[in-house]
Structure formats: structure tokens, C-alpha cells
Write a protein that binds this DNA or RNA. Structure first.
Lengths: 338, 338
DNA sequence: ATATTTTTCTAAATCGATTTCGAAACTTTG
DNA sequence: CAAAGTTTCGAAATCGATTTAGAAAAATAT
């Protein structure tokens, strides 16, 4: 019911000018110690909070950043992206900043989202997206931008990448060290750099251990196509004994295909995933996978973006976040044929 | 590089006053048709977008709403809440509104989030949360609030509920109609009204079909305790032939326990879940469940909140969103003992 | 005690929009 | 054609904060 207090009200209550109140609240130098204390007390007692828009209008920054996901990425149902969002939110909240969320329809690269055109946000974080067009437009607006696991590698802005190659190497190596020589690879579209890099890591591991790379063991298609891919792999004349799935979702689909073929994961077929989402932990047997530090991805993105926005940090890093092998129960040690 | 244009710049370009520009852009009556057209053209050509803060400051509304989830609810990793968020985002984007996201630590009921104290948002949607304290404080601020599946049923604000009782009835009835007489119930803490209501629906169904309610078939504990609960159910002297899990997550845990006991879901034990999250669809065999229209929950919340905020709708509905049985492969028809 | 410096405060301008009120231009009517 | 009524426009106030420049007060130096 009661209208919220403005700085003018506080000024009246404290018998000073609103300029003085502003100085007290913002720790400005030219103010006396006792007046300051007095003003702060009054503000506190009356539960005063400065109006965000008045503040933003004058100071030209809003203390909020925009977070953009692709709508098509099933960004939120997919716990991978959700965790990144959690990381971003946590770090922003820690810095008492606000998060405005935008899910970008794939079609809409024509125009920038309103929040940036209207200057609502001090910077944006693009997760799993960012085509050249869109980025160019952002740059014209000269709004600080941070890319997280972008869909395109060619761009000069600051960005965070996942150590896909090492991770895929570790995953494949893990299978090899457990005696597997016939290791297949499944993934979504290779147009996604992350998948392409994971394929590269897989190949590197095979090469490193002097194992032939078999074309027919490498399958990629669509995003959640793990079910079909696995089914066809199992029908190979010389089927693999192990599969490295370039992401956990596809790995879980592989479970389904394997089960339906009357086989058992971790027994007849070994499986390693990538990402470490909850799904894998819940599967039976629990999925061995490469953990991506998703919250970390989010919080680091915020920290770096804050540096760029508020500290005028000029350096535009490309940061590669490491990954880690998480051993669970989906890999069986076997004796190699050869 | 180029500073964004202000309304003053457009006014200069069009050789009119800024007031006139404002009228043109906002479809005000007292403006000539040709000047209006001319101004709009100039604004368009120069890619002008009004500054959100200037606008918000003057018009006293921000065109953004705050969305609050519980941090402890694993709100985002859990696709249930994610879908609700998607629904909210979609409806807001449709209305060209902004979404600021806040994950509330459970402890923090002492203070309202900054976004509301600073008047950053025109209204808030609380999903799966809202204790009495917090709500009272919100009311003092007289900020329009919408509750979605709240954790407390005693409050007068407008709210959206899930038809838990009917859903649970349908789920249980489905099992009964497939010949099951020994139907167990598992859920998280009954302090959550949603679980309590689902238990009630379960009991109603049993009663309706003249089946005794057996205390030892009703288990509830923790949030993701489905694994242990199911394990102990299977160890009963007279174990159930079917289980109704009050949410899909617990159902998926039940899969794990059942598998580990050497039994098969949809064969030795029938299972029905509640919520219809992706996990259930992915499980083998796919989980029969009660679908909750999660996106709908989100979009309806936004529509009703918009009515309250912008249309001064005084009526504070309690809306109950229906649910639907989704038959998949986790229920087997059996011949009842009796 | 006066002059000078330093500290503390206030009044006013500003950020970018909207809105009000009155003036100017244009229509309609007698 | 003059009077009355309508439209269309612009100047200025306003929203709630911050910041600047200068005045007043206090502290220090001469």
C-alpha cells in the first residue's frame, strides 16, 4: 500500500539534501562521518532501497546482464545447460547483480533481443550459440559479450571453451586401457565444434595407441540420435565392444538400444559418455563419463564479463575449462582379441 | 562505437519536439497522420529503440517480471521446473516482456530479493515456493504476485495448482484396472502439499475400488529417496505387484532398485509415475505416467499476472491445471489374486 | 584576528523517456 | 469573412537517482 520511499523522502527525514543522501549511500568522499552515519541509519530504519531505474538512467549501467540460450537447444530441459545457468545465476547473485534470461529462437538472428537494444543490460553471455551475424550486430552495439561453448569457433571475442579434445582422448584411452580395441564413436551433428573436437580426441587416442580408425565405427547424426546410431552399430558384422558417446544424452539413448538388443551395458558393451549430466548417474549401470564443470563454466563467464564491463579489462581471453574422467559402472575390463 | 540514439536525436532528425516523437512511437491520439508516419520512418531507418530505463522511470513500469525458484529445488537441473520456466519465458517473450530470474536460497526468507526492493519488476511469479513470511513481505510491497504449485496452500493470492488428486486417482485406477490389487505408493516428504494430495488421490482410488489401504505399502521420505523406498518395498513379506510413484524422479530411482533386485519393470513390477519428465520417456521400458502441463503452467501464470498488473484485474483466481494419463510400457496386465 | 586551506553540504543539471497544458494552425460554421 | 471549434504541435515538468560546481562552515596557518 505505502508507496516506496525515494531518496527525496530520506533527505527530508534526515534534514539534508538528496545529494548528500546519495553520497552517504554510495560511499562518496565528500561527506562528514556523523552525517553519513545518521543518514545510513535513517535509510536502514525506513527500509529504503534506491530505485533501480533512476540509478541506471543516471549512472548508465544497470547492474544486470543478459543471458542468451538457444531455444532449440532444449536449453533448459537439458540439465547440461541448466547447470551452466545455475553457475551464472550464482555468481551474479553473489555480486548482487540481476539476470535477464532470453531464449533465442533459431530463426531470429535478424535482430538483437530487446534487452540489448533497449540498453537494459550491461553485457551478455551467449551460451552454446552465437553465429557470426549475430555477433557482428552485437559488436556494433559495442556491448560486452562473453561466449560460452559457442557454436562457431571463428570469432575474436572473449570466450570459454570446454577441453573437448583432452576429454575425448581420456574417454577413449580409458576404454583402450580396459582392453577394448573395437571402440566406436557416436555423436550429434559434427557441425557443432564441440562434437567435432571430441571426435578428434577420439581419433587421437586411437592413433596414439596404434589402433586403426575404422570409418564404420564412427557415427554421427541429429542431436538425440544415439538410439538409432547404436542400433546400427550393434548390427555391424564385427560390432564394437565399446562405445564412446560424445555426450551423455546420446549415451543414455545407447543404453536403450543396447538393452533392447538383449545386451547389457557394462557387461556386453562398455560405454563412456561426455558431459556428466544427472541422467548418466541415474542410469543402470551408472555411466562412466567425462565431467564438464558446468557451474564453473557459468561462474567464470560472469567473472570475466564483469572484468570487461566494470574494470575495463581489455584482454580478451579464450579460456579452456578442463574436464575430468568420472569412473562409474559402464565399462568392463576385457581381454583384447589381438 | 556509435552511441545509441536517444529520442532527442530522432526529434532533431525529424525536426519536431521530443514530445511529438514520443507520441508517434506510442500511438498517441494528438498527432497528425503524416508527421507520425514521417517520424516512424526516421526512427526505423536509424534503428532507434527507446531506452528501457528512461521509459520505466517515467511510466513506472518496467515491462519485466521476476521469476523466483527455490535453489534447493534443484530447480533447473530438474526438467520439471525447467519446463515451467520455458513456459514463462515463452509467454513473456510473446508479449515482449523481460524475465529476470532469481534462485532463492532456502535460508533467505528474511529479505525480499533486490529486484523487488528496487522496483525492477512489475510483478513476480513464485514457482514451487512461497512461505507465509515471504508472501507477507511481498504484500507489504504491494507487488502483484502469482504462485505456481506453492509449497503452502494457505494463502489468499492468485495461484496455479496441479490437479494432483485426480492425477493420482487416475494413476492408481490405471493400475487397478490392469489387475493390480497390491499397489504401493512412494513419494518424497509429505510436507509438500503436492505429495500429500497425490497420496490422497491414491487412497481415494483404492477406496473407490474397495481395496484395503495397507500402511506398509505407503512410503515417503526425502526427495530422491525412491531407491531405498522401493528396495524396502520389494523386501516386504507380501510385496506389491505395482508401484505408483508420486513423481517421475522417484519412479526412475525405483527402476534402479527393481533392476538391482533382478526384477524387471513392466514385467515383474508395474510402475506409474507423475509429472512426465524426459527421464521417464528415456527409461527402459518407457514410464507410464501422469502428464503435468508444465509449459502451460508457466504461460498461464504469465497471462494471469499480466491481467493483474496491466488490466487491474481484481479477481484472484485459484486455477487448477488438469493432468493426463500417458500410457507407455511400464505397466503389465495381470490376473488379480483374489 | 585575519587569511588560507580544507571539509562538508546544497542547489541545480542531468540521464531518456512520457505527459500535461497551452499556443498555433487548421476546419468548420454562421 | 469572422467566430468558434478541432487538431496538431512544442515547452516544460516529471520520474528517482548521481554528479558537479560553488557556497558555507570548519579547520589550519599566518
Amino acid at each position: 500500500m505505502k508507496e516506496p520511499l525515494t531518496i527525496k523522502d530520506i533527505a527530508k527525514l534526515a534534514n539534508v539534501s538528496q545529494g548528500t543522501v546519495s553520497k552517504a549511500l554510495n560511499n562518496r568522499p565528500d561527506i562528514g562521518a556523523k552525517t553519513k552515519k545518521m543518514i545510513l541509519k535513517i535509510a536502514e530504519e525506513n527500509g529504503y532501497s534506491p530505485n533501480a531505474f533512476g540509478k541506471a538512467l543516471r549512472s548508465q549501467n544497470s547492474n544486470t546482464i543478459g543471458v542468451i540460450f538457444r531455444k532449440e537447444d532444449i536449453p533448459l530441459r537439458n540439465s547440461f545447460f541448466s547447470r551452466i545457468l545455475e553457475g551464472i545465476e550464482g555468481e551474479l547473485a553473489f555480486n548482487r547483480m540481476n539476470l535477464v534470461l532470453y531464449l533465442m529462437p533459431d530463426s531470429e538472428s535478424k535482430q538483437l533481443p530487446e534487452m540489448v537494444r533497449e540498453k537494459r543490460v550491461d553485457g551478455v553471455i551467449l551460451v552454446g550459440t552465437g553465429n557470426a551475424d549475430f555477433l557482428k550486430r552485437l559488436q556494433q552495439y559495442s556491448i560486452p559479450t562473453m561466449l560460452v561453448d559457442p557454436r562457431q569457433r571463428m570469432n575474436d571475442g572473449p570466450k570459454l571453451l570446454i577441453d573437448n579434445k583432452s576429454g575425448a582422448f581420456m574417454a577413449t584411452e580409458h576404454l583402450i586401457q580396459h582392453g577394448h580395441r573395437k571402440v566406436a564413436f557416436i555423436s550429434g551433428e559434427l557441425s557443432r565444434p564441440s562434437f567435432a573436437e571430441r571426435l578428434q580426441g577420439y581419433k587421437n587416442a586411437l592413433t596414439h595407441y596404434d589402433i586403426d580408425i575404422r570409418k564404420q565405427y564412427i557415427r554421427h547424426h541429429g542431436f538425440e540420435a544415439g538410439y538409432e546410431l547404436t542400433k546400427s552399430l550393434l548390427n555391424e558384422p564385427d560390432p564394437p565392444t565399446a562405445i564412446f558417446a560424445a555426450n551423455d544424452i546420446n549415451a543414455v539413448y545407447a543404453y536403450k538400444a543396447i538393452n533392447e538388443a538383449g545386451l547389457q551395458v557394462g557387461e556386453d558393451i562398455s560405454l563412456v559418455g561426455f558431459d556428466d549430466i544427472d541422467l548418466g548417474r541415474l542410469a543402470t549401470p551408472a555411466l562412466t563419463t567425462i565431467r564438464v564443470y558446468k557451474e564453473e563454466l557459468g561462474s567464470v563467464a560472469v567473472r570475466q564479463l564483469r572484468d570487461i564491463i566494470y574494470e575495463d579489462s581489455e584482454l580478451h581471453y579464450t579460456t579452456i575449462i578442463p574436464v575430468k574422467l568420472i569412473e562409474r559402472d559402464s565399462v568392463k575390463t576385457i581381454v583384447p582379441d589381438s
